[in-house]
């Protein structure tokens, strides 16, 4: 329970970051993606500052922990860059471009109670489930 509340606060922090940055608003995300229109580059700064914060924290922690802990921190991921990775990312990008929603902002938007937001999140969960059913071996 105590850990649950701590993790709840981390989720809160993540969501507040999205709201403050403007990334919870799909109109702003589409304006960022619309390079040929009235381009709004500010979301590049969101990613840059998130990377700088997380990267800096990782760097600091790695300097202050021994090698064993360092190994624990880096979870194993497949190193290969394959058709699955590229294809999945490309499909994801089409949905992101149509809607201006990626998973975090879509969940943050739920409390506004908009039907289109519910439709997106419901279908996104269906997409997760579809993947699990179709690719049990992956």
């Amino acid at each position: 329970m105590k850990h649950g509340l701590i993790i709840f606060c981390y989720g809160l922090l993540f969501g507040l970051g999205l709201v403050i940055a403007g990334m919870s608003n799909p109109a702003k995300v589409v304006a960022f993606l619309d390079v040929a229109g009235a381009w709004d580059p500010s979301l590049a700064l969101v990613m840059a500052s998130a990377l700088a914060t997380l990267g800096g924290a990782r760097h600091w922690l790695h300097r202050n922990t021994d090698a064993a802990d360092r190994e624990q921190d880096s979870c194993p991921t497949p190193a290969n860059i394959d058709a699955r990775l590229i294809g999945g990312a490309a499909i994801f990008g089409v949905g992101w471009g149509i809607s201006g929603f990626c998973p975090g902002p879509a969940l943050v938007g739920l409390s506004a109670g908009l039907a289109g937001n519910y439709a997106f999140v419901g279908a996104m969960l269906a997409g997760f489930y579809l993947f699990k059913r179709l690719h049990r071996n992956l």
């Binding site: 993540f14 991921t77 699955r84 990775l85 590229i86 294809g87 999945g88 990312a89 490309a90 499909i91 994801f92 990008g93 089409v94 949905g95 992101w96 149509i98 809607s99 929603f101 990626c102 998973p103 975090g104 879509a106 289109g116 937001n117 439709a119 997106f120 999140v121 419901g122 279908a123 996104m124 969960l125 269906a126 997409g127 997760f128 489930y129 579809l130 993947f131 699990k132 690719h135």
Partner: peptide, 21 residues
């Protein structure tokens, strides 16, 4: 259209092993 987008985001993010975050 948002439902279609949600399906693509859900399926694509799992196939590609991750999303924006």
């Amino acid at each position: 259209l948002l439902a279609l987008a949600g399906l693509l985001v859900g399926y694509g993010s799992r196939l590609g092993g991750g999303c924006t975050s």
